[in-house]
């Protein structure tokens, strides 16, 4: 029996790095779509609904509008998870002035849960976010940060809460 090596990601958050393993067996189509747009570089922003999470918005030709590949009940969030998240403009509420203009309504992003609490807070109890319908709201866990997670990476993410946007590059780790 041969074992296929897992595809890996390299995350570079303002000089602090971490690696992650793709869930190819679990969400193959999502993983492939994401693999094909790498590397992705942008200015990541800290979440304000979901606990310890950094968001990297996918812009321009990197934007992805993927279907819901994995059942939502299999998408429980844990520290280290990386999700693909899509939210249509019809679900946008309020002003999103902290986001760049492209994402003040439609949102396509990587959600990187760097610490606990992960996925708790308002996002866990927000009915408008639960249709999970293709083209409206899609969430898919597609990777996880390798353990142990580098403390420097986690603290760089945490510092974004106070210091603002942080440059983040997600690339293939080969």
């Amino acid at each position: 029996m041969t074992t296929v090596p897992k595809r890996k990601l390299l995350l570079d958050m303002d000089g602090a790095t971490a690696t992650a393993s793709l869930f190819d067996e679990y969400a193959p189509k999502t993983c492939e779509a994401i693999w094909n747009i790498l590397p992705v570089t942008g200015r990541s922003i800290h979440a304000n609904w979901s606990g310890r999470e950094m968001m990297l918005h996918l812009e321009g030709d990197k934007i992805l509008r993927l279907p819901q590949e994995v059942p939502v009940h299999s998408n429980y969030i844990y520290e280290g998870d990386i999700h693909y998240f899509y939210r249509a403009s019809s679900l946008s509420r309020g002003k999103q002035l902290a986001y760049s203009a492209q994402f003040q309504r439609e949102l396509s992003e990587f959600a990187i849960f760097y610490g606990e609490p992960a996925g708790e807070g308002l996002s866990a109890y927000d009915p408008p976010r639960t249709p999970y319908a293709d083209g409206i709201h899609v969430v898919c866990k597609f990777a996880a940060l390798d353990r142990p997670m580098p403390q420097a990476f986690k603290m760089k993410c945490e510092s974004a809460r106070y210091e603002g946007l942080k440059p983040l590059t997600v690339s293939r780790y080969e």
Binding site: H46, A47, N48, W49, S50, G51, R52, E53, G94, P117, E120, G121, L122, R161, Y162
Partner: peptide, 12 residues
């Protein structure tokens, strides 16, 4: 004090 932004409640 340095202000903090909520990471769990939205716009707080």
């Amino acid at each position: 004090q340095r202000a903090r932004h909520s990471m769990e409640n939205g716009r707080e």
